[in-house]
Amino acid sequence: MISSSRLIARRRAIAATGAAAALALTLAACGSSSDSASMPGMDHGSKSSASSSSSASPSMADMPAMDHMASGNGLSNGQDGYRLTSKDSTLPSGKQAAYRFTVTGPDGKAVTDFAVDQTKRMHFYAIRSDLTGFQHVHPTMAADGTWTAGLSSLTPGSWRMFASFTPNTGKGTDLVLSRTVTVPGKAAKTPLPAPATSTQVDGYTVTVEGEPMAGMAHPLTVSIAKDGKPVTDLEPYLDTYAHLTAFHEGDAAFAHLHPTTKVSGDNGGPDLSFHAELPSSGNWRLFLQFQTGGRLHTAALTLRVG
């Protein structure tokens, strides 16, 4: 009888310990769920109506098909075993130039299999250290994995070359890697324009509404007008109505944002919604690209992030 009583008491103790462990795991799981909802990144949700609550979160089924958020700030030439390599450390000034580069994988070999993102397998950006001279091009790849990016005239100074891509191998993570090049000559630094809510390009007025905070997802609305009238003839460009790229003043950190508005023919605009997350405070130079009448327009604006 004594032995049996001890056995029963021992089983009850084990059961109580198991219940406590299960409760702890449940609480930990709740905490993990909360943390994952606040992970760095952009919430590419559907465009909300004016009457919708700003705190409402769309379900995955409601969200339009968008490209994945690029990983990191792009200031490194390597990430997750992938590396951006190039023999071009200088490029000529005042004329068209070709920047050649290769992406190597974790095995050290040139990657040749890339996923298509916004109709392209590679997006390439060039920006000078003072955030002038922005170029967004789509290079071509040779059979051996060597990419060639054709660039327009470059001014003297230090430039950073960004490659944004998704390898079809591994986990399929979107990556942004970069290297710097020097354009010889006397470099004259251009002061960054002061923060503003609107700018003009090619007769269009581009207005940005929103007050993003560093490291927090925040909605931005871009409105496009011409001659005082809302523009409603935006054409699809790279599977969206506008392409938005941002660079941070000082270190040229990269951020890549897209509107959540669904594309439905050549009648986009005038308002485009973004869910933006800019990781650092300070000034960011935004470059918005949109297309009308078969012509691509690039508007630049400085946004202050608190």
Rank of each mutant, 00 (worst) to 15 (best):
S4W: 12
R11M: 15
S33I: 12
G41W: 08
S46I: 00
S49D: 13
S49A: 11
S51R: 03
S53W: 10
S55D: 05
S55L: 11
M63E: 12
M66G: 03
M69G: 15
D80H: 07
T85N: 15
T102I: 11
G105S: 06
D107L: 03
G108W: 06
A110H: 13
V111L: 14
D117R: 10
H123D: 06
A126I: 01
I127N: 06
I127E: 09
G133L: 12
Q135N: 03
V137E: 09
A143H: 13
D144W: 02
P156D: 10
K171Y: 06
K171R: 07
L177Y: 03
T182C: 07
Q200D: 03
V201K: 12
Y204Q: 06
V206H: 01
V208D: 00
V222I: 14
D227A: 09
T240M: 13
Y241L: 02
H243L: 11
T245H: 10
G250V: 06
D251N: 15
A252L: 07
F254E: 00
H256E: 04
P259G: 14
T261V: 12
S264F: 14
P270K: 15
D271P: 03
L272K: 13
F274H: 02
H275T: 05
H275L: 01
E277R: 06
N283C: 05
N283M: 03
L286T: 02
Q289I: 02
Q291A: 08
G293N: 08
G294K: 09
L296S: 15
L303T: 05
